[in-house]
Amino acid sequence: MTKHTIPSHFDDAKQAYEASKLGVWLFLVTEILLFGGLFVIYIMNRGLYPEMFHEASLHLNKVMGAMNTVVLICSSFTMAMAVSRAKHNDSQRALKLLLITFICGLIFMTIKYMEYSHKIHEGLLPGIHFSFDEISHPKAPLFFSLYFMMTGLHGLHVLVGMGLIFWVMVRTRRGDFDESYHTPVEMTGIYWHLVDLIWIYLFPLLYLIG
């Protein structure tokens, strides 16, 4: 049986679960609004300088971007499986799936790191640090500001997500979850799907213009 006790201010487990779920969904709304600001800047600048966006996006590495997309989609799948396993009292497999998800996150960040170091090397940097000669458009630095802000903020979210996955892995191992209580796994799952979803928007918006 579970070691979990329902916090005393809740009447029952269902109420506690529903409260957590509503809380996480509201939190996701705030996340979307946070990224929303950047999307607004993106839309505005792309509307103003469409050909610059096209030209600048050619200098992003589509292959790496696509690989990362695949990695994240896979990780979303394993995450969903992990939640389902946790629900069915199968901690063993839940733990394995969580580990795969975590490793996917790691791969994502590694590829991101390779992309970043390449950009930094070439001088494809945001704003005043931009020093790349092959793009003539004077506003091109703005594109790379957007690129770094959007993928950077997203990368930060991946790291936070990995931290959360690590935390639920530890708790799963300890045997905290069973069919009656697995809220943290499920909430981490929802969060991870959002991180994935944001990337699914970022990838075509930044890499596949044209």
């Binding site: 509201l26 946070l34 990224f35 929303g36 600001g37 950047l38 945001p126 005043i128 630095p141």
Partner: peptide, 23 residues
């Protein structure tokens, strides 16, 4: 819940303006 994230990203971008010159 709905408005505060926007000041979050705004202040973050302002900080980045000063640190990285994102423009």
């Amino acid at each position: 819940v709905l408005a505060t994230p926007v000041i979050g990203i705004t202040t973050l971008l302002l900080v980045m303006e000063r640190v990285l010159g994102i423009g």
